[in-house]
Each structure stands twice: as structure tokens, then as C-alpha cells.
Design a protein around this nucleic acid. Structure first.
Lengths: 153, 153
DNA sequence: CGGTATTGTTCAGTGCACCGACAAACCCGA
DNA sequence: TCGGGTTTGTCGGTGCACTGAACAATACCG
């Protein structure tokens, strides 16, 4: 029976793209702070005092995963976690000075890395790249909400 | 200090794309067999008797990861692992009948899923999508080989 | 032939990512 | 006010993914 050509499988390509990114991140940005961790710092720069769930929503991580990422950032002293006096279920998050400093440092490195990463594409191709990536992800995300339950045994 | 717009960060988009794919895979293809596992089955359909390292190379997984994936497939009885009599370092891998059957089944489901996944893009856009994805990944992969050691502390 | 280098696999450690189950806190209607 | 339903966070379990180190079998070379 015929094997399939994986280069026409978006899932396979997505995985490869992430690997490639991971590689560049490690060498050009940081070996300590990961890309999802940076995303969390970034959200908290824009919206200090957000709760854990909302942060997860902003960066696209579920509650379990965001809890781990945040705990790692807390252990490194990059953010603080305080119970919301208004609502005892939540923790309110904000960056420490250390965290803000780290975010600034990584921001410039990340910009450099993105340039290298996207160098193989022309200006217009980069725009197309972003747009297509986004459209596919958004559409799938939409299906999640609709969730007609196409379960598969 | 200004926060950054993550929608122009390819790493972030790559992660979101993979999440979207994972979601669709789970509901439309299989909850048991994952996409990387399918990739391994697929390689072994094309080239039975390959060793572990080569399989990893074909699907783009490092030695540690491929070892785990293969051990899971072995546990499920989808492939066999025999020491190479010619070279006692390797294990030769081939699908069991069960494994071949599984591959056939998932092949058709995967095709269906890819259609849904890519539905938001036109025919031409899909082609562009594949090409850009591939070019970026390949270029980064190339840097790995060159590896000028841009280490970052 | 024997010592050294290379190659294939495994192991330990870290981190991302999902799901389902659970407890505490909150909210709202009877 | 109290009792059911929702929301926030934690926990346990599984799986992918990388690095670096250890280990064994083989290959190469003087």
C-alpha cells in the first residue's frame, strides 16, 4: 500500500516549523526563557494584574499548561502572584522589575531572531505567510467552539 | 515599555497552528495514534526494515524522541523490532499486519482531516502555504548544519 | 592485532501541551 | 439563606521534544 507524502500534510509542516523555530530561539534568544514564557511576560506587560486563566486565553494555552509556565516564571522571580481580594478563586499576576527587565532584553533579541527566521521570504511573502497561518488557525479554533462532536471512537 | 504583537511572530503562529492541528486530529483521525506516530508508520510502509535513527531522520525527530515513539508503537503491537544480524548496534523496524492495517485506516481519515483543515484557503493559497512553510523550515534546518555557533550565554 | 573513534540506542532531566477529575469560591434563583 | 450550577485553579496521567551523558557494538587505522 502506498505511503503518503508528508510534505503536503499541514500538521507535519507545522511541527517542523516549530522545531526550526525552537532551534533558532535557543541559539539567538535564550536558553533559559522559552518562547511561551516570553509570550506570558509580554501579555503581562500590556495588562498587569491579569488572572491566570485570562493570560492563558491571550497566549493560547489551557489552564494546566499556563499554571506550569507561570509557576516556572514565579520560581525565577520574574512575576508575582497574589490572591484577588475581590474573588478568592483567582490569582492576580504582575511582573517584577526583574521580569520587566527580562522582557525588554528578550524583545530586541526576538526581533533579531524573527528577521533571520523569515529571511528566506520576501517582504510580501512574509505578509502572506502571516495571513495564511492566521486564517487556518482561526478557522480551526472556530470549529472548537462550534464543536459538532465529530468524535472518532 | 511597549508589549509586542505576537501575531507577527512566526514562532507563536507555529505553535497555534500545531494546536489547531492537534485538536482536529483528535476529533477526526484518532485519539490513540498521534500524528508523529502516524508519520513513523508511514515511513515504514515505504521503507520496511529501516533502523531507528534513519526513521527519526525521515520524520524529523531526534534520537531520544524517536525511541519513545517507537516504543509506544511497539507496545501497541503495530511494529516489530529486531537486532540487525549484520550490525549489532541497530534495531531493524517493520510494521506488523496490525500496523499496516492501522496505517491504511488512518491514511483515509488523515486525508479527510487535511481537507477540513485547509478549507479556509483556496487551491492556490494552499500551494503557497506549503511552499512558504517548507522554505522557512528548510532554511532554518540549513543553519543548523552550518551552525556558526551564535550561542547566547 | 589492538587501541581509538564513530555510530546506534538508551537514560536522566526539563519543558510544553492536552484531557479529565476535583475542591474551593462565587453566583443566582427559589 | 440555602442549595445547585458555574468558574478558577490544582493534580494525575499521557505524549511530544530537546539536550547532554552513558554505554555497547562496530569500524578504522597504525
Amino acid at each position: 500500500m502506498a505511503a503518503v507524502d508528508l510534505t503536503t500534510h499541514p500538521g507535519h509542516l507545522a511541527r517542523r516549523l516549530q522545531q526550526a523555530h525552537h532551534l533558532l530561539w535557543n541559539t539567538m534568544v535564550s536558553e533559559e526563557i522559552t518562547s511561551p514564557q516570553f509570550a506570558v511576560l509580554n501579555v503581562l506587560v500590556a495588562e498587569p494584574g491579569l488572572d491566570q486563566r485570562s493570560v492563558g486565553e491571550r497566549v493560547g494555552l489551557d489552564r494546566s499548561t499556563i499554571a506550569e509556565v507561570i509557576s516556572r516564571l514565579g520560581r525565577r522571580g520574574l512575576l508575582d502572584k497574589v490572591r484577588d481580594p475581590q474573588d478568592g478563586r483567582r490569582f492576580l499576576l504582575r511582573l517584577t522589575d526583574e521580569g520587566a527587565r527580562m522582557h525588554r532584553k528578550l524583545t530586541v533579541r526576538t526581533a533579531r531572531m524573527n528577521q533571520v527566521f523569515l529571511a528566506p521570504l520576501s517582504e510580501e511573502e512574509q505578509a502572506v505567510f502571516f495571513e495564511l497561518l492566521q486564517r487556518v488557525s482561526d478557522a480551526a479554533e472556530g470549529l472548537r467552539r462550534a464543536a459538532p462532536l465529530g468524535a472518532v471512537r
